[in-house]
Write a protein that binds this DNA or RNA. Sequence first.
DNA 1: GAGTGGTCTAGACCACAAA
DNA 2: TTGTGGTCTAGACCACTCC
Lengths: 230, 230
Amino acid sequence: MSLDARIRADIEARIRSGEWRPGDRIPFEHELTATYGCSRATVSKALGALARAGFIERRRRAGSFVAHPPIHATVLDVPDLRAVVEARGEAYRWALIAQHRRDRADLADIGAIGPVLALTGLHRADDAPFGVEQRWIALGTAPEAAAQDFSTVAPGSWLLAHVPWSDARHRISAIGADADQAIALDLAPGEACLQLERWTWRSGALVTYVRQVFPGTRYDLVAEFKPFGA
Amino acid sequence: MSLDARIRADIEARIRSGEWRPGDRIPFEHELTATYGCSRATVSKALGALARAGFIERRRRAGSFVAHPPIHATVLDVPDLRAVVEARGEAYRWALIAQHRRDRADLADIGAIGPVLALTGLHRADDAPFGVEQRWIALGTAPEAAAQDFSTVAPGSWLLAHVPWSDARHRISAIGADADQAIALDLAPGEACLQLERWTWRSGALVTYVRQVFPGTRYDLVAEFKPFGA
DNA sequence: GAGTGGTCTAGACCACAAA
DNA sequence: TTGTGGTCTAGACCACTCC
């Protein structure tokens, strides 16, 4: 492993672990030069790669800082639905329908171990329901969630702001609305809906699993991209 | 614009334009050093960025070569359905249902200008239908398509292999199957389906627009990803 | 064996923004 | 004004790999 790759991995690990948090200033290039006993070009190459990957922001005369995670709403992001809806100029509302705690996860396929918080709720835009959500939060990985009141704050928004994550997986499929979903979303049973499942992990441990169901006519996912990762 | 960025943009433009094709060797670093009148480190920085972005592959002792576009099947790729199906160990078949040529695109929303080839067909895996496809190919952008026989070769497979592209956009939504789709896919009308629309451009000109409809129970899209683009 | 890319050094000048 | 990151140079050694 090259020296610049070691420096990069080292700093990336400190950011992922939370040792260096968003907004923190990381050491100046000349300090890292001394730390690693190398030239400034090597440090600069490592920091340049980290900046390109979005881990840090670099500002002349000020230094390099751990970046704040961005908020978008495309298929490869974890969207904050509140932000998405408000960006469209509509009023967002979250309503908690049910909440209970289980000391042992009884859903093997979601991959949670230990106590979980199970939540069901409804997302509204301008008072019209546009998504139902069932969510499980692994309290072993995110213990702060146990004390949080989710009656007015959507768990997705709260998690994005408070719990870091390192990996996620989406599964996108089409389903017919079941009876409960149809009532919540004001649809006919069996009407086509977009189902988005998302697993979110932190360092290999599941943070949360969520299943969101949106009416097919009121929601779609968009992805713009280029070939070869260009 | 920095010198290394100019070199990078210059080479990228030659690749996108097709002047340098996949497999071609691009000039050696020391030749580019002479061309641009700069040091090897600057050339190396530009080529390194192009390699990271997937435009070129670099091989010691051999040189740097224009990369071949990869084939994958996740939500941010243009999948070759034949490859996806065969990777699952199933037999793929394509059946052309209808084909006609229009001298003027009559679908303003797809963004095609000039003559288009309109195709409808069915994808099968192990003889079971799993997707219907409606496609428009802009003959102004991809004139070779006019002479191609799409009765046995799926247009998606052919286009991926023969027509380069520079940008794409997906829209993923859920719809109820209409009468024709229900018959083709062997479903009840109104049953939930996943609809994938894709626009593909080359240098700003539309190459093809396709709308694929899959039974919700037989197809889903998966995306795995990390925060900050890490 | 010869020549490529991969990496690193020590130094330099500059633009820019924060102090 | 000052010190940071941004960029570039000229040179070096190395590992790899194709001839």
